[in-house]
Amino acid sequence: MKTLSLTDLAIRYGFLLLMAGLIVIFSIAKPAFLSPQSAVFILQSVAITGILALGVTATLVVDGFDLSIGAVATSAMMLSAYVMVIWDMGAVAAVVMCLGMGALVGLVNGLLIVKMRVPDLLATLGMMFLLVGLQRIPTQGNSISTGMVLADGSAATGSFAPSFLMLGRHRIDFILPDLVPLSVVFLIVIAVLVWAFLELTRHGRVMYAIGSNAQAAALAGINVAGYRVLAYVISGVMASIGGILLAARLGRGDVASGNNLLLDSVAAALIGFAVLGAAKPNAFGTAIGALFVGILLQGLTMLNAPYYTQDFIKGAVLVVALVFTFALSGRVGRGRG
């Protein structure tokens, strides 16, 4: 029992080894890869997808799925722009309304699934289409930017609050001046919070029980419906945070951006299954999964791989990760406490 077999070791540490190997290879090929600036760039590139992925992890834990996260994020981006540029309101109002919108969408998703018994994939897919359309209606399909011309011919009077833009653009002095973007700090704080919630609190424990055997959880007196809804609310709020950071980085409500958010964050969460042989959704794995994708893409970019190969490589990594999870570990969940 004490000595782990080779397969066990492969399942447990295979993915982390793969990641270390990639870092070594990229560093040898391009020594600049190891610089602090490069590391920060990687973190910044994964900050938004990482936060979304942590949200989707919460729904995966209760054996659900949230396909609407990308649409929630872009909706939050458009909403924050609309609130500040067209309604001329401040940063706080924009952030509060975005978070409220994310929570509301999550609540509706949860109720559709729990009360109306719509299968999770279909409910959140429907919500995705609905939001993708809805976010374009107030501006007749146009992007929102400072001073834009409104439907009645006048120019918009509001603008993005500097404090709002700071969320996406400010950098903190850390070792080097202006090194760490605020969005990276958000990612790290949220990752730690989600990890602590899922692994250390009784609520996380109960959510894992629901994901493993919902009927047994219900018969243990657990409010299964309530926790399911909670998972979608968490997912919605995380996605709206991602959207706020996206708006703050771009400084406009861009209808064309955010197309990759859904696929990238789902990939990160699913890759997370393979990390440390967890074979189940987990916050630590999701964060590593997001980082893995970021390292891979940054390395390939530095090696001048064309941009259009990136989706293919992400897909290949995801497939390999799923093989790690399901084939090698034999579908047995390992309790990691």
């Binding site: 424990r205 109960v206 894992y208 029980a209 994901g211 493993s212 055997n213 009927q215 047994a216 959880a217 018969l219 243990a220 007196g221 657990i222 189940k280 969940g333 309790g335 406490g337």
Partner: peptide, 17 residues
């Protein structure tokens, strides 16, 4: 069907309710 949480260890199954 109704009681065991297969993904949990003994301790987590015992303290579930």
């Amino acid at each position: 069907v109704n009681a065991v949480i297969p993904g949990f260890d003994i301790q987590q199954n015992l303290t579930l309710p």
